[in-house]
């Protein structure tokens, strides 16, 4: 499995640090989207691993693990599509506390 991931990035300090063009390495992420969220989805024990939330997530942040599914909260925007698509109501939306 591979996907774009966070890399270190330092803002240009002087003119010569600026790139000559906007082309760059594919899948190069420098900022998280977690601050967009008002609610966070929590996958509960009711999950039957049907993978519908994984499939329908617009951001692709639900991923398979050895024991089931987990969520990449760095990039989840809290839209709640996973909660609505779940046939077992196994995903609960909780108010984001940002901690």
């Amino acid at each position: 499995m591979s996907k774009p991931y966070l890399r270190p990035y330092q803002k240009p300090q002087k003119l010569s640090d600026y790139p000559l063009g906007t082309a760059s390495e594919a899948g190069y992420l420098v900022t998280k989207n977690s601050g967009w969220r008002n609610e966070r989805p929590i996958i509960t024990d009711e999950c039957i691993n049907c993978l519908q939330c994984y499939l329908y997530c617009p951001d692709g942040v639900i991923f398979k693990t050895e024991s089931g599914l987990d969520i990449d909260y760095d990039f989840c925007k809290g839209c709640g599509i996973c909660e609505r698509i779940c046939p077992k109501q196994a995903i609960k939306m909780e108010v984001e506390t940002n901690d």
């Binding site: 774009p4 899948g27 990039f75």
Partner: peptide, 13 residues
């Protein structure tokens, strides 16, 4: 399992 469009800035939903 790989993701090719990830971390994007589209609106939620």
């Amino acid at each position: 399992d790989s993701e090719f469009f990830y971390g994007h800035k589209a609106c939620a939903g």
